[in-house]
């Protein structure tokens, strides 16, 4: 870890301004991403993971306001850049596979032509026709599509193929970071598996960094080196994926893992998480998880726990992380 990080998110705070008041969507989130690293952000809907992804590209919603913090790409604060300079980084340095992007292809243009358009917008100097065709063919091969498919229309693609084409488009300008927001949601398991394997392979070959964003902790387990668990706008635990899955330290992470059914291992009783996520218009005081937390003490409702480093690269924001059992409950299901 001696090399400087590619991307640093430093104490980022972002609110959505609404009629009813400010929604605290991202609260004091910090993490780094190194060359070739695969980071996963996992959490439930409304936990702020997509808000972070959009912020990295500065494509946040119009009513979003950055209260404080920085997002540094190679040391340069993206939040301070004027829009036209930001546009140069977008796609070239950071590309994104949007949630539901597979349904965003324009039905009346050939898929290859739509990728070509992206190339023309971002690639300098502009590629010649031959170069562009060559490049698109290579991209298609990379994501496991027949290059001849570039001349086809979106409706001739299946869901999985469309998603592969979306990934090809994200790769088109050799970005150093790809953000994949729910890249396989709405796909069937077999196709999901194929696409995840493809992404892993590409990442290995090109040495890119990827940020996976998903609600599905099993998907994150499969493809990432580092995992960040988010709850109600806060990053509550961050660490090596293997370590966090083996020894989750934040009660939310612990309960999330305890309540994830699996097809492997013993058939165990799952512990339901009581209650529902808080309304971020008016988040709970102290630790945002305390109303649902079985380990909560009085301190949790008053003081906000800071992110504490408990081992190399493993950080957790909880006053009582020592109380959390060492491994997941394995109570067998009756």
């Amino acid at each position: 870890m001696s090399a400087p990080p590619l991307l640093e998110v430093d104490h980022l705070v972002m609110n959505y301004v609404t009629e009813k008041g400010d929604v605290s969507a991202v609260e004091d989130v910090s993490f780094t991403l190194h060359q070739g690293e695969a980071l996963g952000l996992v959490g439930e809907s409304g936990c702020g993971k997509t808000s972070i992804a959009m912020s990295l590209l500065r494509l946040q919603a119009e009513n979003a306001v950055f209260k404080s913090g920085e997002i540094r790409l190679n040391g340069e604060n993206l939040l301070a850049l004027p829009e036209d300079e930001m546009r140069r980084h977008r796609w070239k340095d950071i590309a994104m596979v949007f949630q539901g992007a597979m349904n965003a292809w324009n039905p009346v243009y050939r898929v290859g032509d739509q990728i070509r358009e992206a190339l023309d917008l971002h690639f300098r100097p502009r590629l010649s026709d031959a170069e562009a065709t060559e490049r698109i063919s290579r991209l298609f091969e990379m994501v496991g599509l027949n290059p001849a498919m570039a001349n086809r229309y979106p409706h001739e693609f299946s869901g999985g193929m469309r998603q592969r084409a979306v990934i090809a488009m994200a790769l088109s300008c050799d970005p150093s970071i790809i953000i994949a927001d729910e890249p396989t949601t709405a796909l069937d398991v077999i196709v999901q598996d194929q696409i995840l394997q493809e992404l892993k392979k590409i990442q290995r070959e090109l040495g890119m960094a990827i940020i996976y964003i998903s609600h599905d902790i099993a998907v994150i387990a499969e493809v990432t080196d580092t995992i960040g668990i988010m709850y109600a706008g806060k990053l509550v635990e961050l660490g090596p994926t293997v370590e966090v899955f083996a020894r989750p330290k934040h009660p939310y992470a612990y309960l999330l893992l305890s309540s994830t059914p699996s097809v492997t291992g013993p058939r165990r009783k799952l512990a339901p998480l009581e209650g529902e996520p808080p309304n971020l218009l008016n988040p709970p005081t102290g630790c945002r998880f305390h109303p649902r937390c079985p380990f909560a003490t009085e301190r949790c409702s008053i003081e906000e726990p800071p992110m504490e480093t408990i081992a190399d690269g493993h950080r957790v924001a909880c006053w009582n992380w020592r109380e959390v059992p060492v491994s997941i409950a394995q109570e067998a299901r009756p």
């Binding site: 409304g46 997509t50 949601t185 709405a186 609600h215 996520p277 808080p278 309304n279 971020l280």
Partner: peptide
């Protein structure tokens, strides 16, 4: 899978 932001916010 529903991923509307805030879909499950009370």
């Amino acid at each position: 899978i529903d991923a509307r932001p805030g879909a499950d916010e009370p």
